[in-house]
Design a protein around this nucleic acid. Sequence first.
DNA 1: GACCTGCTGCGGCCTG
Length: 741
Amino acid sequence: MSSHPSSSDPSGAASSAFHRLHPQVRRWVWTQGWKELRGIQEAAIVPILKGTQDVILSASTASGKTEAAFLPICSRLAEDAGGSVRAIYVGPLKALINDQFERLDGLCEGLHIPVHRWHGDVSQGHKARLLQSPAGILLITPESLEALFIRQGSALAGLFSGLEHIVIDELHAFIGTERGCQLQSLLHRVELSLRRTVPRVGLSATLGDMSLAAEFLRPGAGAKVRLCNSDSGGGELLLQLRGYRKRAPDMRTEEDEEPSDDLPEDEHDVGAHLFKTLRGTHNLVFANSRANVELYADLLRRMCEDARLPNEFFPHHGNLSKELREEAEAALKAKQRPVSLVCTTTLEMGIDVGSVQSIAQVGVPPSVSSLRQRLGRSGRKGGPSVLRLYLQEAELTKTSPLSDQLRVRLVQSVAMLELLLTNWFEPPASGAFHFSTLVQQLLSLIAQHGGVKAGEAFLALCHEGPFARVSREDFVRFLRGLGQRELLSQSSDGTLLLGRVGERLVNHYSFYAAFASVEEFRLVAGGRTLGTMPIDQPLFVGTYLIFGGRRWRVLAVQGDEKVVELEPAPAGRVPVFEPTGVGRVHDRVREQMRAIYAGDGLPRYLDARALELLAEARATFQRWRLNERSIVASGMEVHVFPWAGDAVVHTLALALQARGLSVQTLGPVLSVAGQQADVEGALRALVAEGPPRAESLTRHVVNMALEKHDGFVPEDLLARDYAARYLDAEGAWRVARQVLQ
DNA sequence: GACCTGCTGCGGCCTG
C-alpha cells in the first residue's frame, strides 16, 4: 500500500464507509497492517452491504478486488453463516480458486465463516462434507457447478436455500464466450430453483464500455447494475517497436530432414536482443504461439549456456505440465534470481506473478485489448511500464506478395500501438446465439429434473434466460433437430427426455465443460511429466523435439497409454501444435492502418529498421495510388482494399465467391482472379441488392461447426450463429459502396 | 495467424 497516501488508520475521513463493516472484519483489516482501504474496496462497501444490488467492481490486476467484494459479504455473514451455502464465488481457474481460498480463509477464520473449495482436484471427502452440512462460502468453477446440477439436481434448492451473494471473478474472461454463456445459464438456473434473484458481484479488469459487462452480468437489466470503477490511470509508458528483416523464402536454405542447430538469422537477431536486454532482470516475453514459445525459450536458454550463466529463461504455455508451470511462476515471483518467462496468453490473467521490469511482444499482437492486458503486468510499483515489440518483415523480392510489400505486420502493429495510446481497445464479442451451449444447457436441465416440458424449457433457457435471442419458432426447430439426432426423446405426455445419444453425452464427465478438447499424448522424461501434445503428431522413436525449452529425442511411444518417453538430446525441433480458430482484426485497426499508410508521421518509438520498413510500406501504398482507389488490377489478379476488419473482409470474400469468383484474402487485401470489370460488376450487383442475407452467404463456408455441440444443431440455425459471430453483412454492403466510388 | 479454461464415479491396487 506504499503507493497510497498514508493516514493513521483505515477509519480516516476518506474511509467513512469503513465503519459500516462488521467490527471483526475491521479488526482483520487492522491486523493486515493496511493504512487505508483502496478506492475500489471503499466504494464496494455500501452497495454490497445493501444485499439487493448487482455490482461490477472494475480495477486493474492486484488492486484488491477480491477483498473489496468479501469485506462487506463477510460482514453480512459474520453473525450467522450457516443453514446453507450463503455465498458462491465462481472462478475460471482452479489455481485462482486455490489462491483465493488461502486468502479468504484468513479473513473468515476469526468470523467463523466456513470456506469450501469445489473443483476437479478437491477430494470427494471434502465435497461430501459440504453436501452434508452446507454453510458459508463456496468457491467453485463453472464446470463443477454444472456437475452439481446434473448429479445433485434434486438437492440443489436445499444446498443453496439461504444464498445471498454470487461473486464472479475475472468477469471479462467470460464475456462473449461459450463458457460465459454456460455460466449465465447456470446462475439463472440457480435463481429459478430458489424462485428469487440473488445479487451478483462481477470482478473485472477495466473494460472500455462497461455497459456490455453489466448486461452480461444481469441479462436484460444491465442498466440497473451498479458500476464501481477505480481506474488507477495510465502511468508512464516506455515504448519501442524494433523492426527486423527476414530472408524471403526463396533466399532461405532448404530445411533438410536432420534438425539443424542453426536458426534463421532473424530469430537469432531477435533472440540476441532479448538476451542482451532482459538478462539479469524479471520480464515476460509474449511469443503468440506455443511453437514460438518453445523456439525462443530454447534459444535463450542456449544463449545463457554459451555465456556460462545459469538459465534465466523458462517457457510457459497450456501444454506444459502443471508442475513445470508452477515452478516457472514461483521462480519469477520469488525474485531471488533473474527470471524471464516466455509465454502465450497463459500469463495474461489470473495467477499473480508479481510485477516485472518489462514486457516483450514478439510478432503482431493478437488485439489491442490483449496488448493492454499484457502491459498491465509491468511497472506496477509506480515505475514506468516498458513494452518492446519485435517485428519481422520479409526481405522483398520480385515475387513478394502485396501484403509483404505493404509491410502489413509492421503497419498493423503501429496502428495497434497508436490505438492503445489513445486508450481505445476492442469491445468483447457479442451477438452470437450460442446454440452449442444451448444443447448442453437443455440436456443438463432435463438431467436435473429427470424431464421437462418444451414450454418450460423455453421459458427457463430462452424467454427469461441467457438465450433470449432464440425465438419460440427457432427453439421448436432446434428441438426437432435434436430429436432426429437422438439427443432427445419425448414421452407420451410431451415431456422431453434424454435420447440414446443424449444419455451417453450427459453421463460422461467431459459433458460438464462447454468447450471441446482433443486427446493428447503425455510427454515423460526420466519419470517426470513435461506436458502434453496432440495425438495426431507423427512421433516415432528417434524423432527430435524441443519441449519445455529443452531438446529431446523420442525414446519410446506407448500408444495404449498415450505416453511418449523422451531423453535429452543435443538437437531438437519445435513441435507443431494443432492450429485452432482464426484471429479477428477489428474495423478500427484497419482504419487506423489506412491512416498510417496515407500519413507521413514518424512515431518516435520506431527504431531505425522499423522506420525503413514503414517508408517501404508507404512507398508501396503510393506506387499503387491506394489513397485514391480501392481496387487495383495487377496481372491476372484484382486486389480489393476494403480497409475494414476481418468480419467485413470475410463477408465480401463470400459474397464474391457466391457470384462465381475465385477469392483469396491476405490480411486486409482481397485478391480475386480475373478482370477488374468482373470484380466491379460483382460488387455493383451486391450494392444494388442491398445488404446480403448472411445465412445464404455461408453456403461456401466449409466447416461452420466450430463449437463443441455444433454438430447436433440444425444447419440453418448453425448458419445464423456463424453469421452473427464471424460475418458483417451490413458493413460489407456499406464498404462495397465506398470501394466503388 | 492463436490462445486458454475444465471434469465423476468406480474399480483395482498398495500401504499402514
